[in-house]
């Protein structure tokens, strides 16, 4: 097989031509032509978002059987650390993400709200499993179960299942990474999220 068709002709600088195509400053192009050829062009937003989505540290917050799947996700076979989200922090002050993995009882909901409030901005929430999404099997007779954790805190990604397999949680994490990748110039939680949080009828 011949690779000649894809090989640029001699003397053709791919990087320089690319920059000229996109009308990059001539001064910059000269820098590229010089010896320092190993740098990347990007924006501050993209760099910050890339850093955020590559190291989403979850808070250690396992509630029920979904937590077993969350532990399996962080173990070697599925290895959530491939996505930079394997550092489960023991304190909400160091965490970016709360994976609500399991049944949220009314008693725990007060603690959940407090832990969410203690997490620094920016912060995200994954509702994992039927119970955290909408009460699940406790909808009808669960006198003690909150019917959906989004009545307490704003939820970014819903991961359905009872419980969800580790692949599904990883999929939810990747969708959260997509969401972070699209953020523009926001260094705090968006206004619609804080407005939503104020409407939640938690009084304490």
């Amino acid at each position: 097989m011949s690779r000649d068709a894809k090989t640029p002709p001699a003397g053709y600088d791919v990087q320089r031509e690319h920059m000229l195509d996109f009308k990059v400053d001539e001064q910059l192009a000269k820098v590229v032509e010089s010896d320092a050829k190993n740098f990347i062009l990007t924006t501050v937003d993209e760099v910050f978002n890339w850093a955020k989505l590559s190291s989403i540290w979850p808070v250690t917050f396992g509630l029920a059987c979904c937590a077993i799947e969350m532990m399996a996700t962080s173990a070697t076979r599925y290895d959530i650390d491939r996505f930079g989200a394997g550092a489960f922090r023991a304190t909400p002050r160091q965490a970016d993400l709360m994976i609500v993995s399991g049944t949220v009882t009314g008693k725990m909901a007060t603690r959940l709200k407090r832990i969410y409030d203690q997490m620094p901005e920016p912060k995200w929430v994954i509702a994992m499993g039927s119970c955290a999404i909408g009460g699940g099997p406790y909808f009808k007779y669960g006198y003690h179960v909150v019917k959906g954790v989004d009545q307490m805190v704003p939820v970014d990604v819903y991961v359905p299942g009872c419980p969800p397999r580790p692949e599904v949680l990883l999929e939810g994490l990747m969708r959260l990474q997509d969401k972070i990748r699209g953020r523009k110039g926001r260094f705090v939680t968006p206004k619609w999220v804080t407005d939503y949080a104020k409407k939640i009828p938690y009084r304490k």
């Binding site: 009314g106 909901a109 909408g134 009460g135 006198y143 909150v146 019917k147 938690y202």
Partner: peptide
């Protein structure tokens, strides 16, 4: 004869 709570300590217990 227990009636399920709609709200408890500020936590909504009712569903959607």
């Amino acid at each position: 004869d227990y009636v399920m709570p709609a709200m408890w300590e500020g936590v909504p217990m009712e569903g959607r």
